[in-house]
Design a protein around this nucleic acid. Sequence first.
DNA 1: CGCGCGCGTTCGCAATATCCGAACGCGGCT
DNA 2: AGCCGCGTTCGGATATTGCGAACGCGCGCG
Lengths: 300, 300
Amino acid sequence: MSWTISDIRTFLAVLDAGSISAAAARADLSKSVVSKRISDFEAALGVALFTRHAGRIAPTDSAFALAERLRPALADLVAATESVAGPEAPLRGRLAVAGPMSFGLRHLGPVIAGFARAHPQLEVVLDYDDQLTDLGRSGFDVALRIGWLRDSSLIARRLCEDPHALVASPDYLARHGPILSPADLAGHEAIGYLNARLSEIWPFGPEVAPPRQGRITANNGDAMRDLAIGGLGLALLPLFIVHDALRDGRLVRILPDLPQRRLPVSVVWPPTRPMPRKTRAFIDHIADAFAEDPPWQRGV
Amino acid sequence: MSWTISDIRTFLAVLDAGSISAAAARADLSKSVVSKRISDFEAALGVALFTRHAGRIAPTDSAFALAERLRPALADLVAATESVAGPEAPLRGRLAVAGPMSFGLRHLGPVIAGFARAHPQLEVVLDYDDQLTDLGRSGFDVALRIGWLRDSSLIARRLCEDPHALVASPDYLARHGPILSPADLAGHEAIGYLNARLSEIWPFGPEVAPPRQGRITANNGDAMRDLAIGGLGLALLPLFIVHDALRDGRLVRILPDLPQRRLPVSVVWPPTRPMPRKTRAFIDHIADAFAEDPPWQRGV
DNA sequence: CGCGCGCGTTCGCAATATCCGAACGCGGCT
DNA sequence: AGCCGCGTTCGGATATTGCGAACGCGCGCG
């Protein structure tokens, strides 16, 4: 019994998704197909990749070790098959784009729709996930990132800058006291962001101490905005998320004149040589799209 | 339409074999299957890999470029899947062994049969071909080589040494005159070896000039021996090929006391890291098998 | 403590893909 | 001119794949 590319892709998908059911849902396959592919793959390799207990699976150490080698090998294979078409040949294959949820939903849709229309034979996959930290996960070609980059192994191109706003609801300030200077921040709590510590994304410089992180956290910017509107604390959020709430008064800006370092919005990709044509095309496309200031920055 | 591992393997096989019919024969598939896989692969990639004319195919430049990238990528994928089994797991997968035709037929059969019996889940492929020069051709894991190695990118382990004999038939010597000293060689012709120039494998050192290469050449040692027996010239051949013909007088040794550098017999493999377990196991096995002098060297 | 839930596995069945052999057209060789 | 070997195409048989239902398991909740 031998393995197939589908077996490998399915294995990596299950590892990423954490369960057969989730991987099946993502791949639009039935659970039985995914389950069988995993079993067949294990039989072909002669090793258990997952342990089974009470209708749950857990990856083995072998699974992680195998994935570590399969991902680049599969990427090379795919890159090889996609490299062979001439420069004028239509783009084909599969381009996976990752990005933050709120940013993606708001600003990437039309841009990527335009790109997909321009390349009808290219399969485009969007995966919006605020927790995304590892471009090495199976199948991603490019990612959008907000903030200063931690992973220096990736190549980055800055698209624009994203100012943040420290906000609170009027109700919150009425109950907890106004904030008239940076020193006043110490007496307040901020709604936490599950995927990054406040100090990591604090844009006002080290001389302004951030408020302490409160007992409320969320893993999504829109959720944090809603919690802030509900009066549960201060929130440091991208302007594009709070723009409307600021305009209609549900939130107010805290210390709006404080100078800040704007957070960059970048597209990043792994340093594959030669660069796949589809990756080049996408990066050029999105750079063009962001060449002028985004709408949420006009008038602020 | 997407491609499969079978498509890739079939493409590389056709490139190696030079025709769909030959590749089909080698793979024990029908011509129509191989033809369809090539067509499907071309459709999936959106590029022509072969040109067709009057029932013949020829590879395009794209085919060579693609193969150059697919071979290592496929090898990485296979290595990854084979790396995952623990050290005590039975060897599985596919081990391809290349070697010279005559040597392989005579001396490798029992050795490799023993190895195959010890590892019942491992598929073993033997490819005896005197012209084999490129271990990079698809699918070879190890090769046996006779002679000094040209390709320093391979790792070699010497198994034994292989003396050669310069021989001729009594009839040839009766017609062309005896050879009493090295200087007499100049007046004679040697049957050529299609895969190596005589000067490349001449074991008697530069101070002994080889005879000139004649109009008769062959690509196989046994064929050269038979041509020598037929009186068509001198032949420089491994002892294991001419051993029996020397014993029964059909050939006689020329200048048998001339000191020579024995040609090494080595097993070679590419420097893959980590070394596949199957490759390690095979090399150890064949080194053990050749640890004592081979039978054709006893009594000479 | 009992029930409902979500998970993964297995099985039978239908749909799809794969493989084979025959037939055909092409150009080269005798 | 006829034969040969090549690659392509097609219809049919076979094998594989994918699906949904049913089941057993342990966990969490009331």
